[in-house]
Amino acid sequence: SHFELRVGTITLHFDNISEELAEELEKLAKNGVHADEIRRWWEEWLK
C-alpha cells in the first residue's frame, strides 16, 4: 500500500509499506527525526 508521511515541509512517499512500518515511521517523525534520516532508515530496511 502507498503511504505519505509529512515531515516538516517535506512529504515522503512510500510504496509497498506495511501498516506497522508506516506507524513506526510516523513515530519517528513525531519524535522530531528529520526526513533525510527517515528516508535513509527506509532505504536500509529495503535492502
Rank of each mutant, 00 (worst) to 15 (best):
S1Q: 13
S1C: 09
S1P: 05
S1F: 13
S1H: 15
S1I: 15
S1Y: 08
S1D: 08
H2R: 08
H2L: 02
H2M: 05
H2C: 11
F3K: 02
F3S: 00
F3D: 01
F3T: 01
F3N: 00
F3Y: 06
F3I: 02
F3W: 13
F3M: 02
E4T: 02
E4W: 08
E4V: 06
E4A: 02
E4G: 00
E4L: 06
E4M: 03
E4Q: 05
E4K: 02
E4R: 03
L5P: 00
L5T: 01
L5I: 11
L5H: 00
L5C: 02
L5F: 03
R6T: 14
R6N: 10
R6Q: 15
R6M: 10
R6Y: 03
R6E: 07
R6H: 14
V7N: 01
V7C: 05
V7Q: 02
V7S: 02
V7L: 08
V7F: 05
V7R: 00
V7E: 01
V7Y: 03
G8P: 00
G8T: 04
G8S: 01
T9P: 11
T9L: 12
I10N: 03
I10H: 05
I10L: 11
I10S: 05
I10D: 07
I10Q: 08
I10R: 02
I10M: 06
I10E: 13
T11P: 00
T11L: 07
T11D: 02
T11V: 15
T11K: 03
T11F: 05
T11Y: 06
L12V: 03
L12A: 00
L12I: 05
L12F: 09
L12C: 01
H13W: 10
H13G: 03
H13C: 07
H13Q: 07
H13A: 06
H13N: 05
H13T: 11
H13R: 11
F14A: 01
F14M: 02
F14S: 01
F14E: 00
F14Q: 00
F14Y: 02
F14R: 01
F14K: 00
F14G: 01
D15G: 09
D15F: 15
D15N: 11
D15P: 08
D15Q: 09
D15I: 11
D15A: 09
D15L: 11
D15E: 10
D15T: 11
D15R: 09
N16C: 05
N16I: 04
N16T: 04
I17R: 00
I17T: 02
I17C: 03
I17L: 04
I17G: 01
S18T: 13
S18Q: 04
S18N: 08
S18H: 05
S18L: 03
S18G: 07
E19Q: 14
E19K: 14
E19L: 13
E19N: 13
E20W: 09
E20K: 11
E20L: 06
E20S: 10
E20H: 09
E20Q: 12
E20T: 11
L21P: 01
L21W: 05
L21G: 05
L21V: 13
L21D: 06
A22K: 15
A22L: 07
A22N: 02
A22E: 08
A22F: 14
E23W: 14
E23R: 15
E23F: 14
E23Q: 15
E24G: 05
E24M: 11
E24Q: 13
E24N: 08
E24H: 11
E24R: 13
E24T: 13
E24D: 08
L25F: 06
L25S: 01
L25T: 00
L25M: 07
L25K: 00
L25H: 00
L25A: 04
E26D: 10
E26M: 15
E26N: 11
E26T: 15
E26L: 15
E26Y: 14
E26V: 14
E26R: 14
E26S: 13
E26C: 09
K27A: 13
K27C: 10
K27I: 09
K27W: 11
K27P: 00
K27M: 11
L28I: 05
L28T: 02
L28V: 03
L28G: 02
L28Y: 06
L28P: 00
L28S: 02
A29V: 10
A29S: 05
A29M: 05
A29L: 04
A29Y: 04
A29N: 04
A29F: 06
A29R: 04
A29W: 06
A29G: 03
K30A: 13
K30P: 02
K30W: 08
K30T: 08
N31R: 15
G32R: 04
G32M: 08
G32Q: 04
G32K: 04
G32N: 08
G32E: 05
G32I: 06
V33Y: 15
V33F: 13
V33H: 11
V33L: 15
V33R: 12
H34E: 14
H34M: 09
H34Y: 06
H34D: 12
H34P: 14
H34L: 10
H34R: 10
A35V: 13
A35G: 05
A35L: 08
A35R: 02
A35W: 07
A35M: 05
A35F: 07
D36H: 10
D36Y: 06
D36A: 11
D36K: 06
D36W: 08
E37T: 09
E37H: 09
E37A: 10
E37D: 12
E37L: 10
E37C: 07
I38F: 10
I38W: 10
I38G: 01
I38T: 02
I38L: 07
R39G: 05
R39N: 07
R39Q: 11
R39E: 07
R40G: 07
R40S: 09
R40M: 11
R40V: 06
W41G: 02
W41V: 14
W41N: 04
W41L: 11
W41P: 00
W41S: 05
W41Y: 14
W42A: 14
W42V: 09
W42K: 02
W42Q: 03
W42F: 15
W42M: 10
E43P: 01
E43W: 15
E43N: 14
E43M: 15
E43Y: 15
E43H: 15
E44G: 07
E44P: 00
E44V: 13
E44F: 14
W45K: 09
W45P: 00
W45T: 06
W45H: 08
W45Q: 08
W45N: 06
W45I: 06
L46G: 10
L46W: 10
L46D: 05
L46T: 11
L46S: 12
L46H: 09
L46R: 12
L46M: 13
K47D: 05
K47H: 13
K47I: 11
K47R: 14
K47E: 08
K47W: 12
